Simulated assay, not measured.
Amino acid sequence: MIRLIASDMDGTLLTPEHRLPGDFEDVLNRTLDRGIIFAAASGRQYVNLADCFPNHLDRIILVSNNGALVRKGEETIYVTAMSDKDRAIIEPIGRRLNHGIFIAQGIQGAYVERPEDRDIDDYMSAMPSFFSKIRTVESFDLVDDTLLNFSVCDFRGTQEHVLPLFQPLSDRYTVRLSGDSWLDISLHGSNKGEALQALQRHYGIRYEETAAFGDFMNDAEMLDHAKYSFAMENAHPDLVKHARFRAPSNRDHGVVKTILQMLDHPNDYPQ
């Protein structure tokens, strides 16, 4: 019996317009009424993720910052944070970017050091779609917040233009594409899979009792730790090998359709 369902947000649960499907509320209520825990897992910052579920913060789990922070209501279940040493290694590379923006994500908000040699207003004007709280600062050193991870947004495409810069850090950190225009840098052990395992330990839930949905490579570890692992029809090709099943695309509301199918016809999915 499934006791825990975890779903990525952008490209997975949310529609291409970055909205919850219209029938999500009914499906969530049915899921919770069955005693099943629902976790929304995203690369988004906590405050932005919480804004997606204003009426459910005490009912569901929020896994934000690609697994660096796990909370239910006011309870923090799991958290990892960057040390000064980590920052000294990662931040100089971010400052060398000639395009896009380098973002430090904290518990309270997100922060961007404004470059002296180029304008980033076009990028900053697009950020409210992804961050509820984001602002420019003179230096990350002036930020009074716990920094959890770093992100890069480059509308030209991060796989070609950004990943090569940060790939050499892969022996020390998790460097992952999280969208066509996004790349995330986090601590080893700070990913959605580790967050999912923390939830499993916290609630006494087994791998065999867990389902997970994702579309991009930052969802890979999460799918690895769920027996009922679903790659969306619109998923990155490399993610598919981490999934036992496929779900319809986010455009077709694949997560809610599949959850309903699991609730009503559990035998459709092999044990």
Rank of each mutant, 00 (worst) to 15 (best):
A41L: 03
S42Y: 00
G43I: 01
G43N: 02
Q45E: 04
V47K: 04
N48Q: 13
A50D: 05
A50L: 11
C52A: 11
F53N: 10
F53W: 13
P54K: 12
P54W: 08
N55Y: 10
N55G: 06
H56R: 15
L57K: 15
D58L: 01
R59W: 06
I60W: 13
I61F: 05
I61G: 02
V63T: 10
S64Q: 05
N65Q: 07
N66M: 00
G67L: 06
G67D: 05
A68I: 05
A68Y: 00
V70Q: 03
G73I: 05
G73Q: 10
E74T: 09
E74M: 06
E75A: 06
I77N: 07
V79Y: 10
V79R: 13
T80P: 02
T80N: 10
M82H: 05
K85Y: 02
D86M: 01
I89Y: 04
I89D: 01
I90V: 08
E91M: 03
P92T: 00
P92N: 03
P92S: 00
G94M: 00
R95F: 09
N98H: 09
N98T: 13
H99V: 03
H99F: 07
I101R: 11
I101M: 02
A104W: 05
Q105A: 04
Q105L: 05
G106Y: 02
G106A: 04
I107R: 14
I107N: 03
I107Y: 10
I107K: 08
Q108P: 01
A110D: 04
A110C: 14
E113M: 11
R114L: 01
P115D: 02
D117H: 15
D117A: 12
R118C: 09
R118N: 13
D119L: 10
I120K: 08
D121E: 15
D121Y: 12
D122A: 15
D122Y: 15
S125M: 14
S125I: 13
A126G: 15
P128S: 12
P128N: 14
I134L: 08
L142W: 06
L142I: 09
V143L: 06
V143S: 01
D144F: 12
D145A: 04
T146G: 02
T146P: 05
T146H: 01
L147I: 15
L148H: 09
F150H: 10
S151Y: 06
S151K: 12
V152S: 11
C153N: 11
D154A: 08
F155V: 15
F155T: 14
R156I: 12
R156C: 10
Q159P: 00
E160N: 14
